[in-house]
């Protein structure tokens, strides 16, 4: 076991390309054991690319990904999962023609401890009771929110040491977003699970996380404790959508308003 607070994931100077286009320009970040860390940024900032590089879908051009003291930068996605990282991709990638129950069992594909698998399915149903009533339905027929609950539960079935969450709030109603983030906090609290959370919804992400990084065009531009980031003027202005107090911000606000 890694002691609480010691980095379980350490990403160092990561550079990733899509063909000739460089998506990440040397990103470094850490996830302390048992904590929630969030990565914020606008569309195209490279948030998803960071997660995909960690989980082995993209091989980095330069830099290291160290997980629990082991270099995992060159592993394939299934090997990364077996090392203890479960990735919940954006866009609710369920198995549409499998039932909810079968989707959950697929999450436990690498496990052989049958009794514990049954118990974990019950735990998932405790977190998201709606899934229990949908257990025998095909996952493709669920609503967007239910699918999001399913993919989070499915990742938990793999009993990861680190959970990667990619925009769990995408396309969900505000009430549902609150529910899902409440569960994310509970998962972290109950199991001491480390979580790396990518979000566009900076407000709820910073309220959930212990620590945050802000990405802009493939670089980390700001990092700090969540409470601290929530107070920063530039974060408030650009990511929380609050009206700035500085003259420049007011001007910007006015300009923006006049477009309509």
């Amino acid at each position: 076991m890694t002691a609480d607070g010691v980095p379980i994931l350490r990403v160092h100077n990561l550079e990733t390309y899509y063909g000739p286009i460089q998506a990440l320009h040397g990103i470094s970040l850490e996830v302390p054991c048992g904590r929630i860390v969030t990565v914020l940024g606008a569309n195209g900032a490279g948030k998803t690319t960071v997660l995909r590089t960690i989980s082995g879908v993209i091989t980095p051009e330069r830099g290291q990904v160290q997980f629990a003291g082991r270099n995992i930068g060159k592993l394939s996605p299934d090997q990364v999962m077996r090392a203890g990282i479960c990735h919940v991709p954006e866009g609710r990638e369920v198995f549409p023609f499998l039932t909810v129950d079968e989707n959950l069992r697929m999450g436990a594909y690498t496990r052989t401890d049958k009794d514990a698998i049954e118990r974990d399915i019950q735990t998932c149903f405790d977190y998201f009771p709606i899934l229990k009533t949908r257990a025998t339905q095909r996952a493709g027929l669920l609503s967007g929110g239910e699918q999001q609950m399913l993919v989070i539960s499915r990742a938990l079935m793999g009993r990861p040491k680190l959970l990667l969450l990619d925009e769990p709030s995408l396309g969900l109603s505000p009430l549902l977003i609150l529910q899902i983030f409440e569960i994310i906090r509970r998962i972290n609290r109950d199991h001491g699970m480390s979580i790396l959370l990518v979000e566009q919804n900076a407000n709820i992400a910073l309220q959930t996380a212990d620590f945050g990084y802000v990405l802009e065009v493939g670089r980390v531009v700001i990092s700090g404790d969540s409470a601290e980031l929530l107070q920063r003027e530039d974060i408030k202005e650009f990511y929380l959508g609050q009206r700035g107090t500085s003259a420049r911000a007011a001007q910007r606000w006015k300009r923006k308003a006049s477009w309509h």
Partner: peptide, 14 residues
């Protein structure tokens, strides 16, 4: 079945 329905998600399940 899972791998044929969603290859990437199957990878993420190990």
């Amino acid at each position: 079945q899972a791998a044929s329905q969603n290859q990437l998600a199957a990878y993420y399940m190990g």
